[in-house]
Simulated scan of single mutants.
Amino acid sequence: MPLHMIKLAVGAATVEEMLAWRATRFAPGAPWVMTTRMTPKRADELLDGGSLYRVFKGVILSRQKILAIATEGEGREARCAVTLDETCVRVVPTPRRAFQGWRYLETKDAPADLEDAALGDVPEDLARALREAGAW
Rank of each mutant, 00 (worst) to 15 (best):
W102H: 11
R54A: 03
S62V: 05
A30G: 03
G120C: 03
L130S: 03
L3W: 00
R22Y: 03
R96M: 15
M18P: 08
W21A: 12
E132W: 11
P40H: 00
T94Q: 13
T14M: 04
C80L: 08
R76E: 13
M1V: 10
G11P: 04
C80D: 02
T87S: 11
G50S: 06
A30C: 01
R42P: 05
A98N: 14
R90I: 07
K108L: 03
P95E: 02
T83E: 14
I66L: 08
G73P: 01
K7N: 09
P2S: 14
I69P: 01
R37I: 12
D109G: 07
P111W: 05
A20C: 05
D109R: 04
R103N: 15
T107H: 10
D85K: 05
V33E: 00
A98M: 12
K108D: 13
A112C: 11
G50C: 03
T87Y: 05
G29I: 09
R54S: 07
T83F: 02
A117T: 03
A9W: 00
A70S: 13
K65Q: 15
A12N: 05
T14G: 07
E106C: 07
K41T: 10
D113K: 10
C80A: 15
I60H: 08
T14A: 01
G134I: 10
V91T: 07
H4I: 10
T24D: 12
A81R: 14
K108N: 09
I66F: 05
E115R: 15
M34Q: 15
V33D: 06
S62D: 14
V82S: 04
D125T: 14
D85S: 12
G73V: 09
E115W: 10
E17M: 01
G29K: 04
G58D: 07
A70R: 15
I60Y: 00
E72G: 10
I69C: 01
F56C: 01
I66S: 06
V122F: 01
H4Y: 02
E106Y: 06
A12T: 07
E115Y: 09
P123Q: 04
K41S: 11
E16C: 03
A12I: 05
T94D: 03
F99N: 10
K108S: 13
I6F: 08
R79N: 05
